[in-house]
């Protein structure tokens, strides 16, 4: 079954076409890498798929709901970890999770249990009462991810979750992604680390608002005739 079905999705800002008739599907439990240059239209596309921005034309069905007519239902059924802002620095680890859990209307008792389970899984139980600004970036990112899936969404959108994170924590983060996907949650992730693109089941590469390439990492490398996704990317984004 498909979790995401995007059909000729388009967004124009005045004369500028940020996203130009993109079409693709993502299967349930799939890890889909959504790659592209800075300014290629990735974030705009994610905002449309998550019901935050109305498309100019085209449709997208996300978690079974239509982005144009049912944006509220989409927001309830997805998790979203944004590029920059994700947690409140002046709240504690626990308070952040409590806040997001409450927004998603998770019952109080159930919420407390989920938060404690989630922190235990991250090995962060001891940090529950620390202010978020005092913990390292890598931990913040893992925490932001755990917070984004606290309400058990069917799909999670991750916009550059590992930007600036060191090689070890990046791998720990991807382990979290794999674990989450193995429970049937669909993951759509953007990254500028091309080794991470190799961890995805399938990837698409966007340039100037269009999807230029789409397939498994192996297929794309064969198609372009190069050995790494980095070379695929450089080849396609340059032109």
């Amino acid at each position: 079954m498909n979790s995401i079905e995007v059909d000729h999705l388009t967004k124009k800002f005045g004369d500028f076409t940020a996203v130009n008739e993109i079409s693709f599907q993502v299967k349930e439990g799939e890890i889909f890498g959504f790659l592209g240059a800075n300014g290629a239209g990735k974030t705009t596309a994610i905002k449309m798929m998550s019901g935050l921005l109305q498309p100019t034309s085209g449709t997208a069905i996300v978690a079974g709901y239509d982005v144009v007519t049912q944006p509220k239902l989409i927001k309830r059924n997805i998790g979203y970890m944004s590029q920059r802002f994700s947690l409140y620095n002046d709240l504690t680890v626990f308070e952040n999770m409590q806040l997001f859990g409450t927004i998603y209307k998770i019952p109080r008792k159930e919420l407390k249990k989920r938060i404690m389970d989630s922190l235990a899984a991250l090995d962060m139980t001891k940090q529950a009462n620390l202010l978020v600004h005092s913990i390292p970036l890598g931990w913040k990112q893992k925490l932001a991810f755990a917070t984004a899936i606290l309400h058990k969404p069917k799909i999670v959108f991750l916009d550059e979750p590992t930007s600036g994170v060191d090689p070890i924590v990046r791998r720990e983060f991807w382990n979290l992604i794999y674990e989450t996907a193995s429970t049937g949650v669909t993951i759509l992730v953007t990254t500028h680390y091309m080794d991470e693109a190799e961890y995805c089941h399938r990837i698409s590469i966007m340039a100037d608002g269009n999807i230029r390439l789409l397939g498994t990492p192996e297929e794309l490398k064969q198609q372009v005739g190069v050995n790494t996704i980095n070379d695929v990317f450089v080849e396609y984004v340059k032109h």
Partner: peptide, 13 residues
């Protein structure tokens, strides 16, 4: 200080 964090591979190059 981390001038290329969050920058795509082509721009990094």
């Amino acid at each position: 200080d981390e001038p290329t964090t969050g920058v795509d591979p082509v721009s990094r190059k």
